[in-house]
Design a binder for these strands. Structure first.
Lengths: 223, 223
DNA sequence: TAGATTGTTAATCGATTAACAATC
DNA sequence: TAGATTGTTAATCGATTAACAATC
């Protein structure tokens, strides 16, 4: 197969998931006026080994200086560029229920990386309201607004029963990425990216580890 | 080292994270009156390969029948027992902000696996209110109530600034597991289990894949 | 300079996938 | 019976960790 342009070596997903934590640490260092930091120091704050920091940061293209460490500003810049977080990403939120409302209120948390333009819902009681500064629009307005504003990201916080139907709407509106908070496995063409955020999987891990910890303490041997 | 009792072979975390999805599928099959299901059919619904279903389900101890498949009821039972989800887990929720409120409203979603006894907050405006049927108590009541009710699980949805302080309180209250929705790396003794649920990591993955997808479509070669 | 820290290459570890005999 | 599906053992794939020369 012909290779048209530069090859992107696939970056490990666990690495990508850790980058926002590095960003948080680096921002806090910068606030303290610290300009350079070693992987060793970051590792202490992350509660992990320094080699992981070096390997992870390497994917962003940042180059550290032996004996010195990494330039805080440059590293923030490199991570944000890698994630596409230096210019904020516009998104629609679909489903203004309790979880949707919570995410609308998260504004500050995501440090300008995510800009929710508007929320949509089919519930007449919610339509027209303003939640955390974002207007709730009728779902029938989605198509028009999406094409006018070229929004290509959507946060899906609707009931499971309508998740696929809404997804089909989003696809026809040319949405490229869906952050899926429903438990439904969405069917999409491979031009569309779906990121599943299923809270019950985290709960499953917690409960399992709790049970194992309990047994370990009773004197059994957890291997 | 002496082995005191049965050895628990460590179960892969990705497997544990998938178990709740299987549970959802099986519950829906049972509702339709279906009593037996093959790994092949589950795989179609999970959008994955059948071998993954067989491997994953094996950790719960369920045994299928060649040519037939798995008994739906028995498999539900096996998964729930493995996760400790057959008797509901009592938990406190600390921090009744927007995300905390959302989780209080999730009751139905977690199918009786998680029973939030009460919420706690330090904001006098919130104290005394009832959110989604759960009473919001002053944080100073935590210690007393935790010891009386033997609650050993907490959901942490407080601002980052107080996350570690509240965690220290929880530890002194004998809480064994913390579901941590803050971006803070909590320091805890190894008798306590922390499950981090950092939403920004999911957003990072979505944004990265979106960028790569965009480049791929422009005719570049993503490897 | 001496020594801490970097980037790279190799080794280990763990999870997924493949292959296949057993079986209902 | 024939063939679909299981559980198990082996092979592959991918991520983490270790080792170490280069270096400021």
């Amino acid at each position: 197969m012909m290779e048209i342009a530069e090859q992107y070596k696939k970056v490990a997903q666990p690495t990508i998931r850790r980058l926002p934590s590095y960003l948080g640490i680096l921002h806090s260092l910068r606030k303290q006026g610290i300009e350079v930091v070693s992987g060793t120091v970051i590792a202490e704050k992350m509660l992990c080994a320094p080699i992981q920091i070096r390997k992870d940061l390497a994917v962003t293209g940042i180059i550290g200086r032996p004996r010195i460490g990494f330039d805080v500003n440059d590293t923030i810049e490199a991570i944000e560029t890698f994630l596409g977080w230096n210019n904020s990403n516009d998104a629609f939120l679909i489903g203004a229920g309790s979880l949707g409302t919570a995410l609308l209120g998260y504004g500050g948390f995501f440090n300008h990386n995510l800009n929710i333009i508007a929320a949509f819902d089919s519930d007449k009681v919610k339509i027209g309201k303003v939640i955390h500064g974002k207007k709730v629009l009728g779902i029938e307005k989605l198509s028009n607004l999406a094409s006018r504003m070229h929004v290509h990201m959507a946060i899906l916080t609707v009931p499971s029963s309508v998740a696929q139907t809404i997804t089909d709407m989003l696809i026809s509106c040319n949405v490229q990425g869906i952050w899926n908070f429903t438990a439904v496995k969405l069917v999409v063409p491979d031009t569309v990216v779906v990121q599943n955020e299923d809270l019950s999987s985290g709960l499953a891990v917690l409960c399992t580890r709790l049970r194992q910890n309990g047994k370990a303490k009773k004197g059994e041997n957890v291997k």
